[in-house]
Each structure stands twice: as C-alpha cells, then as structure tokens.
C-alpha cells in the first residue's frame, strides 16, 4: 500500500471541504473494499478521508412508511435492527448475508452503494425497493444511480448521507454465493408494492439492473410459476473463472423464482 494523507473529519461539512480541495482524495466508509484495493495498489489516492468520525451519518429512522438508513450504518446494525426487521425484513436478511461477521461489523450501506461493486448485495435492494439516495448535494432515484462497473451517478466529492427505502407489501432477496468468496455470483431482490413489482439483479452484470419482463409477468401473477419461462439473455453479463455469462443468466431465473417463493411465504 502506498502512503497517503489521512483525514478524520467530525462533520459532513468538514468532510466535503477536505475532499473538495484535492484531486486524488478518496472518502472511506467502512474500508472493507477500499483498504484491500489500496493494498493491491489498484488505487493510489493522495488523501483518504475517513468518514468514521462523522456521527450524523449513522443511524436508522422510520419516517412514515419509509425506512431511512444513514450512510455510515453498519451491516450488522441493519441486520439486527428491530425497525428494519419490522418494516422490510428482506433488507435485514440481505444485510446479514454480506461477507462474514467481522466484515459486517465494519462495512457500511453507504460504502457499498457508492462503490457499486458488481457483486455487492445492497445495490439489488436499492434498485428493487426503488430507494432514494440522498447526498450532501441532492437526491438520486435508484433507477438512475447505478451507471456501470464501479460507476454511479455520484459527482466529484459528492457523499451519500442516507438511503430511504419505501416499505413494500412483500419482498425477498435470494443469492447464489460464490462458494469461496461468498460474494453474490447472482443475487435477486424481488419486491411487490400494490400492483407494482420490481426485480433487481446483482452479481450478473457490470452493475445492478432490473428485469422488466419478469416485473410485468409478476405484476399480473405474483408466483414463481409466472416467470418460469422467461429467459435472460446472456449478452453483456459477467463472465469469469467463477461462471460464464450463460450460467449467470440461468441463475437469474433460478434466484428470481426462489425470491418470489420466499416473498410469498
């Protein structure tokens, strides 16, 4: 790891100020991705701005029928929160499936969403639940947030402050783990709210995406039977030593059906 200048601001305003003056500064949330990236010298920031001291960014609030989760809220907190379990149990389940206990004790929702790792779990929930991402400069709708591999709609120096999840009628997340790394080879988040159904996929493509054909079929008939014949094209899906694009395309169907069954339980 190359050395860098370390900053630990106490407020969001201070964090934004530190980031602003520097071209190669990187914010750090839990560091569960950034620190391994620095070790491999895949990034070489001049400055690391540790958000761990910004207390205003952590915490979970219920606002009407929305669950508002602060960016620096740790996975373990989301997984065990009574409010999350009551409002959106599928989201608590998802948080409890990330990494392992020690990683969940450090990793944060904001870090995961801002990073847009193709195999991260949270992007599927953000997209599947039609969440709103609030930053220090504005708001982003989930549908226009995940742009590509490690690429989001966040601008230079823009920091996620919280993510607001509307409560669905039912939802579930199913993931097929890579047997070694435990990352999602494919994860599918399915949510039904009134007559609207959203199906969001992580792990399969460069970034999380929705499957319109499944959403339309499930809106008419919310059963796994309704989507059993829908095939996902393998074009543009991830292909690596862990699985081919065709294999991942197949897994999307399997995980989507399991998620619908789980949501109906």
């Amino acid at each position: 790891m190359y050395d860098f200048a370390y900053h630990r601001p106490k407020s969001l305003a201070d964090a934004a100020t530190v980031l602003k003056g520097k071209d190669e500064a990187r914010p750090m949330a839990g560091g569960m991705t950034l620190i391994p990236t620095l070790k491999q010298r895949l990034a070489r920031p001049t400055d690391v701005v540790d958000l761990g001291g910004v207390k205003e960014l952590a915490g979970i609030k219920v606002e009407g029928s929305n669950l508002v989760i602060g960016a620096m809220t740790k996975h373990v907190t989301v997984a065990t929160s009574a409010d999350v379990k009551r409002m959106i149990p599928a989201l608590a389940d998802l948080a409890g499936m990330i990494g392992d206990p020690a990683v969940r004790n450090r990793g944060t929702i904001g870090g995961s969403v801002a990073n847009s790792d193709p195999a991260a779990d949270y992007p599927a929930a953000v997209l599947g639940l039609n969440a709103t991402i609030t930053t220090n400069t504005g708001k982003h709708a989930a549908d226009s947030f995940f742009k590509g591999l490690f690429e989001t709609a966040l601008g230079e120096g823009e920091l996620i402050t919280s993510i607001s999840f509307p409560k669905p009628d039912k939802a579930a997340y199913m993931k097929f783990r890579n047997p070694a790394s435990r990352y999602a080879m494919v994860g599918v988040f399915v949510a039904k709210t009134g007559n609207t159904v959203r199906v969001a996929v992580t792990g399969a493509g460069p970034a999380a995406f929705r499957v319109k054909a499944m959403e339309d079929a499930l809106a008419k008939n919310f059963t796994s039977e309704a989507i059993k014949d829908i095939k996902i094209p393998a074009d543009g899906l991830n292909s690596d030593i862990h699985g081919s694009a065709e294999y991942r395309a197949h897994l999307v169907g399997v995980m989507a059906r399991r998620a619908v069954d789980a949501a109906n339980k």
């Binding site: 370390y6 560091g31 620190i35 391994p36 540790d50 020690a102 004790n105 450090r106």
Partner: peptide
C-alpha cells in the same frame, strides 16, 4: 470482532 488486516491503525 474485526479483521485487523483490513483496518488502519489510525482508525
């Protein structure tokens, strides 16, 4: 519990 290889001493 934390993985001390993935946390900076300054943190």
């Amino acid at each position: 519990s934390v993985k001390s290889c993935t946390m900076l001493a300054v943190q």
